[in-house]
Design a protein around this nucleic acid. Structure first.
Lengths: 340, 340
DNA sequence: CATAAAAAAGGAACCGGTTCCATTTCATTA
DNA sequence: TAATGAAATGGAACCGGTTCCTTTTTTATG
């Protein structure tokens, strides 16, 4: 409808296009009387500048791109909320790339470094391999990873090994000896080295430190999601010597664990302890013991770091790493095991 | 980095820019040998077309815009998932506009009709007033409302009055006579006529039909969110004659209700029935009785309708309305009241 | 082999902004 | 009042694609 261009405005106001552009961008060297004329013409024609044209001319989009396995992870939503907070401050818009399949992931890593649609890129929970990292570095826009890591890229991370250790240690301290670990698939096609496998390392470390044996049958992995976790825990609880405690690599999976337990009439925490990871919003309501990681904050920090990089994009300094703290939140799903 | 343009490619391949463009767009009239030359040059220079420039030239963005009060409503996430499904099929990208404040809402309704950043606009859970609807209609891109309604705009809706009626009727049928309703603020700054006030109408209708009095003290409203709902329900349960059943306008608020009840040692559903609305993902896990609305489907249908409009944008036919069905899901938070 | 018709290719103009440079207008000072 | 410098303005060129019109090349036909 509104095909009013800057030239139409210029004509209507009886000035040149340059002057109209200067008015639009609050350039100081426009006489007050001229500015008024132009503003009246803009008003009269209901002119609004064409953002795409502006972007092409400026070589700048005022968008930032966010890639995330968005809908399969409630934690992504929380992170994105943090991102949004910063974006709103800077008047940047959000272009969202959701990832649910490996094809989509690869296609994005192929096309995103181009970066013509945004001035900065935030990658959440997807770890690039070395080639991909290289491409991103060569690309024209700054990149920040959140909940993913690569030595050559800016990143906001947590210590997943420590987190796995903390969770397992908590169960050990309560007196558990038969501790299972459930997680999504460690060799995930999504991630180069995923968080779950680092947490797994922490789990193994804690067991080893306590002199507890690692039992392969206590370690299950499947796609991320409540129903899959439920199924895994059913299998665990059907073992001849079932675990007395379960460490789930995410709260989502811990929910599946609680579900399975409840379906078998097993009372948590009396007969089974469950600890999760993330501390997503409903964790509190479910009274789920978990390792809290600052999800919202990770988004805020990631976006802030990205803007910082965008400002000083010239100086190719070292890749920054921001590490956020973890915290054990003891609620009501863990307790000492039943004494025999 | 990659400032390779189509002219560079043309030079390298020893052809004109037009030919390169034709190769890029699979135009038939390019000789096979020429195509090969060009493709080799593209490969050699690692050329990727500049999307913004393409958009300006084409007057088409391959983006669709989605506005939603996104992070305050888990239901929006589910809807967006549906939208994404369709988008991925069509190779469209998603530009997301989150709304958390009235200022932001108004600013968006002011600027979005311009529609230069996307080829179609989806508005979720935000109801435009008549002026805003008019602007949207005059704008250059098709618009579809999801979970919001305006007679002149395309929309995917549910019958909120019926939903409110169904929830209340369920409680009445169980034998409840003291039924409270909690909701977010009816005269919300976000919405012209919000869903909550329509559900409220259904609530009143059901009460009236059953000959039950409407008691103002059984009707509370506050900002949307778990803690606010929790507070409202604490107040309700502290009344001299507290309600025996609560209808919450959303599952999120129902969760707050459950929390408050549990904190007061009131057993659900024996001493208090709670019914929600939406059937968000955790509702099943919480065994929450609720009115199911097709959230995911609403996104799918909304996006599909939008693409349909975008295809046949010329013919200004009537505004379509797609109404999705509601379903009572009886789980474990409602039961007959205790007989006195 | 000449010629007409069809196919392929070249490149200017365009999309709608911004910016830089040249030019005009204004203000200041002698 | 003229000279000088500063401020304000006009508009061509540019950003990097696409497209249309024109020219060149190829193919088909007599």
């Amino acid at each position: 409808m509104s095909e009013v261009t800057i030239r139409d405005v210029a004509k209507a106001a009886g000035v040149g296009v340059g002057t109209v552009s200067r008015v639009l961008n609050n350039h100081p060297s426009v006489r007050e009387s001229t500015r008024k004329k132009v503003e009246e013409a803009i008003e009269a024609l209901d002119y609004k500048p064409h953002r795409i044209a502006r972007q092409l001319s400026l070589g700048k989009t005022s968008n930032i791109g966010v890639v995330a396995p968005f809908f399969i992870r409630p934690s992504s939503v929380e992170r994105l909320r943090g991102v949004e907070t910063i974006l709103a401050e800077h008047k940047y818009d959000l272009v969202l790339y959701n990832v649910e399949t490996k094809e989509r992931r690869d296609q994005l890593f192929e096309s995103l470094p181009r970066g013509d649609m945004f001035d900065g890129l935030l990658i959440i929970t997807l770890t690039p391999n070395d080639d991909e990292a290289e491409r991103l570095l060569r690309g024209s826009v700054p990149v920040v990873l959140v909940d993913a890591s690569h030595p050559r890229l800016n990143r906001v991370v947590i210590d997943d090994v420590l987190g796995g250790y903390m969770a397992t240690k908590h169960l050990i301290d309560l007196g558990h000896e038969r501790i299972a670990y459930i997680s999504d698939i460690l060799e995930s096609p999504f991630e180069h080295v995923g968080a779950s496998s680092l947490r797994y390392r922490g789990y193994r470390d804690a067991l080893a430190e306590a002199g507890l044996p690692f039992l392969p049958e206590y370690y299950h992995q499947d796609q991320h999601g409540v129903p899959q976790a439920r199924k895994m825990v059913h299998e665990l609880l059907a073992l001849p010597a079932p675990p007395t405690a379960i460490f789930a690599a995410s709260d989502t999976q811990a929910i599946g664990a609680l579900q399975a337990a409840s379906e078998r009439g097993i009372v948590v925490p009396d007969q089974l302890s469950v600890i999760g990871f993330d501390d997503i919003e409903i964790a509190e309501f479910l009274k789920l013991t978990t390792i809290h990681q600052p999800l919202f904050t990770s988004g805020v920090e990631g976006a802030a770091l990205l803007f910082q990089c965008m400002q000083s994009s010239k100086l190719k300094r070292e890749a920054n790493e921001i590490q956020l703290p973890l915290r054990l939140i003891e609620r009501a799903t863990t307790a000492p095991p039943i004494s025999i």
